[in-house]
Each structure stands twice: as structure tokens, then as C-alpha cells.
Design a protein around this nucleic acid. Sequence first.
DNA 1: ATATTGCATATTGGATCCAATTTAAAATAT
DNA 2: ATATTTTAAATTGGATCCAATATGCAATAT
Lengths: 228, 228
Amino acid sequence: MYDDLKQRAIDLGKTASSSDIIFDALRDAIISGSLKAGESIRQEYIAKIFNVSRIPVREALKRLESQGLVRNERYKGAIVSSPNKEEIREIYEIRLLLEPNIIRYAVQNMSKGTLRIASECLDKLAAEQDSSKWGELNRQFHEALYRDAGRPIHLKIVNDSIDRIDSYIRAQLNLSGGMEKAHEEHMAILEACEAGDVEKAYELTVSHIKDSYSTVMTHLGHTGAMLD
Amino acid sequence: MYDDLKQRAIDLGKTASSSDIIFDALRDAIISGSLKAGESIRQEYIAKIFNVSRIPVREALKRLESQGLVRNERYKGAIVSSPNKEEIREIYEIRLLLEPNIIRYAVQNMSKGTLRIASECLDKLAAEQDSSKWGELNRQFHEALYRDAGRPIHLKIVNDSIDRIDSYIRAQLNLSGGMEKAHEEHMAILEACEAGDVEKAYELTVSHIKDSYSTVMTHLGHTGAMLD
DNA sequence: ATATTGCATATTGGATCCAATTTAAAATAT
DNA sequence: ATATTTTAAATTGGATCCAATATGCAATAT
């Protein structure tokens, strides 16, 4: 009895700490690009915004550092860090190793509900023009597709990896035809999932990631080698 | 000029913060097993040991959490966390995806110096019987082999992954013949590296990881499926 | 004028203190 | 005796204050 009250109590108990709230907010600010690479993050400034002391801000900055989103230098503070070309390549290499395998596991266990959620994401994506909202929907789409894989650790690595290159991905989407191309690839992947075609979903995911990489690198004026 | 003074100055500037020192110490304590899974870490207790306040301890705990080594629950504190069987499997899956590729890149760029360092590690390993020192040397060996791959992000993921299962690996080594078998595999991998045989090093690394997984799982009383 | 030194300000790292919450034991009721 | 409520101690989260370091500007020397 009192089940719903207990649930509310649990939810209340899980209210995030200041440090968690600030971590999320700073993370969003960085990946959305409102905090740009190289910019320094003043603890006092962030603390004033959230009406808190610098303590939870510092804890958030430490966590952001271990996620690779900022660089903390002692007595100098935190600087928003952005991967260079080698790091971007490495992140794409990692995505290329993990994500196709994730989708393979996912397709084998994909529920009707998941397919519906992914399909709804795709509908919204078709209508969306703003690249930053598009980016968020894009994440939701991939998370839906990957959910049934039952590989939370893989997912955390992939999500953290995407965080680090998100601003580049958004820039790439704004290129002519960027969103259209991604959208077509998404539809093809979803179709393969609906058909239960594991290997096709795998191959399409490989191509999707490789395409994203080459577009991002071209945008950065790089004309060198693609991913294996 | 002033070269040695400059080096000293750089070293001085890099003195670790209390938070960093405590992070390293707690991490070592966890992966060495002196802090056991499920044990709770009292901030005040750690702070007293290091003669500092609880502030740097808390920052260290936050970082340990984002590395998956502890679980922080609000107002309850930090608990040393250990992966369950599904998580162990997932971690091995990730290692199986990343490490063979790392060694592939590494062999293509491996220097004489690196081969010598790896060989020295192996010599020490041959003489070592204590599983916890063995574990540390084992790490050094793999880090040497992977160094020339030029894939620092891959390496961080792999090292963090190994941290999380380190206690299981050590337990596995203590099984009858555990160290001997691993040692033979290590020698074979090093030989392939010295011969510049990329694909052989790749395959041996795959087998090495699969063997480690099956031994660990057998030790946990699991008789189910091996890795793909 | 330029380079170097000294000083004031800004900023971060850490210590101490207080508030919020949990936990376990004591008190009370059934 | 058992279950519930009350209460006190332990513990964590956060605010405020102080110390350590960096940074920028003025003063000085060459």
C-alpha cells in the first residue's frame, strides 16, 4: 500500500545534488556549443548563476574533466577542451568498433515499442531544421535503437564519445544536404531493424559512421585517409 | 640553457593536488583489493589518513564514480562497486573490440626500445609469484605493447575497463596454472610483435582476452557461453 | 624604448563550520 | 513481545572563510 506515495518519496530522494545539476548544465552548454572550445570556465561565475557556492561547481568540473570535456589546470582553472583531428579520428574509430556491435545485439532483441519510439524520433527529425534540436533528436533516435542491446557500458562509452565531437557533428549537419543524407541513412537503418536484418543494420551503421566522419573531416579541410 | 632547472620547475608545477593524490590512492586500494566490493568509504576516515579536509576526498570520490569504481548515493556516501557477471562480460566484450585493434596499430609502429621494455617486463613476470605484483607488471607489459599504437583514448578506455575487473583477474591468476598460461600467451604475443606479424599479434591478443574471460567466469562458477 | 622587478588583484585549492539527511537506538503504544 | 514513533548520533552536502598561486599592471633599471 501507499505505493504511489512511496514512489514519490523515492523520486524526491533522488533529487539531484547541486553538483549533478551543474554537471548536466555545463555538459549541455559545452556540447551545444554555447561554451566554446578554449573558453575558460570561472567557478565564481557559474556559482553565481546557480546561486550556490563554488564547491559543487568544482566537483562538476572534476567530473567533466574525467569525461574529457574540460581540462583542469591547477590554480588556473577549467578550459573547455575540444578534440584535435587525431582525437576526432580516434573517437570515430571507437564508435566504429562499438556501435555496429551494439546495433547487432539490439536488433536481436528489439521490441515493437522500441521500434515505435525510434520511428517517432525519425518523424520529428524529418520536420526539424534547427541543427541543435536535430542533434538532440538524433541522440534520442540512436539511444532508442541501442536500448534493447542491453549493453549499458558500451552505451556510456559511445555517449561520452559523441559528447566530445558533438559540436563538429552539428557543424557537419549544417552543411548542404547534411541532414538529408543522415536522415536517409537513419530510415534505412530503421528499416533493417524492423525487418530484423542484423547484418544489414550492422553494415548500414558502419557506413553511417564512416559517412559522418568523412563529412566532418572534409568540413575541417582534411583530405587524408578515411577510416578503415 | 638552465635546462635542468627548467625541468625541475616543470616538475614542481606538476605537483599533484590533494584531490589527485587521494584519487590515485583510493583507486589503487580498490583495484588491489584492500578496499573490497560493497565496502563503504567514509570521507572523514580518508581525510584523517591524509591529514586533509573532506573536500578533496569528495572530489576524488566523484571522479572514482565516473570511472565506475565506486557508487555515490546522496547523503549515504560512497560504496566500492564491483561488476556483476553481465558487466564483466560486457567489459571483456569491449576489451575484445579495442585491444586487438590497438595491438594492430602498435605493431605497425613498434620501436626497438618498446620491444626491449616489454621484454624486460616479461623477464620480471617470469620471476614473480605474488599475484598482486604480477598484476601490476602485467599492466606495465600491456601498456608497453600498446604504447606505440598512438591511440590514447582507446588506451584510457581499456585501462579504465581493466581497473574495474582487476580483482577478478588477480583471483584468476591465482588459480592453478593461471600465471603460467598467461605467461606463455604473453611470450607468443611479444614474439609476434618482434616479428612484425600484425595479424598474428591480433589473433593472439584475441585468444589471450578470451582465455582470461573464460577462466574468470569459470572461477565464478559460470558455465555458460564464451565470448563471440 | 625595452626588459625586469615588485605589487595589487583575481582566481583557484583547501579548511572549517553549518544544514540536511540517514541510521540506529531508545521510548512508546498495541 | 512486537511494531511504531521519537530522538540522538553519525554522515554527507554545501557555505563561508583563508591560503596558495597566477595574472596583469605599475615602477624601476638598463
